[in-house]
Write a protein that binds this DNA or RNA. Structure first.
Lengths: 327, 327
DNA sequence: CTGAAAGCGCTAACAA
DNA sequence: TTGTTAGCGCTTTCAG
């Protein structure tokens, strides 16, 4: 590349990075040569020399349920016109895999790390604490962040939903969700809800958990199972909208009166719900905004600006839809 | 790290990579020091020195519709126990963005590139052709691959569905899909279908396109619009299952006889469909398998094994569900 | 089994 | 405005 354009490597570097003063003439020579050769600069060497790696590691549990892709979309959009580029890693909700992925990503010396959740293995926390880049833990604010944090309080979300359910007059409440140990946020919502119900002297009447398979189909099955087992149930709280939608479709099939005989609520505000016959009660998890805010924090730190607040707690909005109403 | 363990950098390197013979004693010393310091080796330096970057670039149009995440899952799983690691880039169906993403990823000198589609800008094709790593174009086999290729023939898929529809006796067929220019595969399915219908002397009776928004809701809206405009329509072919599901729910709401009065079919075989009140006719796009095969090709080339076949055409399976039947 | 030297392809910091 | 000189932190290669 240097020979092809007849200037020093250094000048080539300056042109290609648009840094430093270069005469128009040499600039054109270099650009022409680059195009002609199909030259793609080696970022590895560049990164090593400058110790600048414009990558932001985004570590999330899964891509299978639309919530993380949306967070990602927020991150990508925010980073779009910056030097930074997101790189995603998926953990499948497995702490060991999270550890592996973090190690792998940190070994590339990223400019920032955005990682879902506040629960990590000892080793993961240590790695993140040592990483000399901003670390933003996202989704959840119930706990102690290593560095920065953007999310919502899932305990609070559970509590708020519990209040809405109680207010509407439901008393025989069932919970349907993912297997707990894997999903801390679902667990926290569950805890927030049960605690609030407990204060009102109400106990969860029944519960059912699943893992794997089509969420919509699981929602149907679990709903059927719970109704069979606990016929006097009058409210179903689903840990996500997808299984909630399945339950809704099932109950509609059966001709059950919603929200009279049974009320329903999910969690997330997935776009999918817009097309359902009834609007499921749900709570928006602010996914896109979480991604945006997290990316902005990384960006601000990276460009040396004042760091934003270390812990950003967003407020999810409750929407009652057609499935949660005073009886 | 070298000082902390009291051995040469070289020996540290050997221990950490598990390459070369090192005595048990020094191995332990090094590992102990690494753990104590929370040492994370710098892959940038390693990659530069060894000119080995164990990253596989996976370039896809979107993460919003579950089809690419599934491809990705296939890739990840296949690469799981190898040295290689997938890194995803998203193009939003924009050729310019694809170009940018490819340039960016290639500048990291990946060990392989897996990219969706066979249609690329001139510049993108040139970059890929020059890249000295395996390049696997996926999803689609209707065209000329740069290097290797794994996918299905979408034209064929459209033709096969057309045959099933004709066989069942439908004649007033409407098409509902995404805006064409963006999605080459949807366009090819459309072409495959119209061509086959044309041979039978049948013309598409109506068509409707959308972009953006909740696919389920769009499916409802588009279906309603088409029925209003072309009341004698007797079959609706949707370019993806999500809008198909929306249409299905709409028609069910309206109490329309399916598949008697109107037949329906989608495309993709998304898991979601399992939970719907009726099974939508669809065609499996072999998404996971595509990811697996593509990853295997990269892996084989990387480990110097015999390259697999250059063009792998998978066979999607047609499932008629409850919405496409002889009338 | 272990170490020393050279250099991967760039960029920071100077010099001209 | 341009070029020169040193590395960046590892791994390759070759000697011990």
């Amino acid at each position: 590349m240097s020979e092809a354009s007849g200037v020093s490597e250094m000048t080539v570097s300056r042109v290609l990075r648009g840094k430093g003063d270069v005469s128009e003439a040499t600039r054109l020579k270099v650009q022409e040569a680059a195009k002609r050769l199909g030259y793609v600069p080696n970022k590895i060497a560049g990164a090593l020399a400058s110790s600048r790696v414009n990558l932001v590691a985004v570590v999330i549990p899964s891509l299978k349920n639309m919530v993380f892709p949306e967070v990602l979309a927020g991150v990508s959009q925010t980073l779009e016109n910056s030097q930074l580029q997101p790189v995603v890693g998926v953990t499948d909700y497995l702490p060991e895999k999270e550890e592996k992925v973090l190690f792998e990503m940190l070994s590339w010396r990223p400019s920032g790390v955005i990682v879902a959740g506040l629960e990590h293995s000892e080793a993961s926390r240590a790695m993140l604490a040592r990483a000399d880049c901003p670390v933003v833990e996202i989704m959840d604010t119930d706990g102690d962040p290593i560095d920065a944090c953007v999310g919502i309080s899932h305990r609070r979300a559970g509590r708020v939903m519990a209040e809405a359910i109680l207010d509407a007059g439901y008393r025989r409440i069932g919970f349907l969700g993912t297997k707990m140990p894997l999903d801390h946020r679902a667990r926290k919502r569950f805890e927030g809800m049960t605690r609030r119900l407990g204060k009102a002297g109400v106990e969860i009447a029944d519960q059912e958990f699943y893992s794997g398979g089509s969420a919509l189909a699981k929602g149907r099955e679990m709903t059927e199972a719970m109704l069979a087992r606990t016929p006097d149930i009058d409210f179903l709280y689903y840990s996500n909208d997808m299984i909630g939608a399945g339950g809704l479709l099932y109950l509609l099939d059966k001709g059950i009166d919603i929200p009279g005989r049974i009320g329903l609520a999910g969690f997330n505000g997935v776009e999918l719900l817009d097309g359902l016959p009834r609007q499921l009660a749900t709570m928006d998890a602010c996914r896109r905004e979480i991604g945006e805010r997290a990316a902005r924090i990384v960006l601000a730190r990276h460009t040396g600006e004042q760091a934003e607040a270390e812990k950003v707690e967003l407020s999810p909005t409750l929407s009652l839809g057609d499935t949660l109403a005073r009886r």
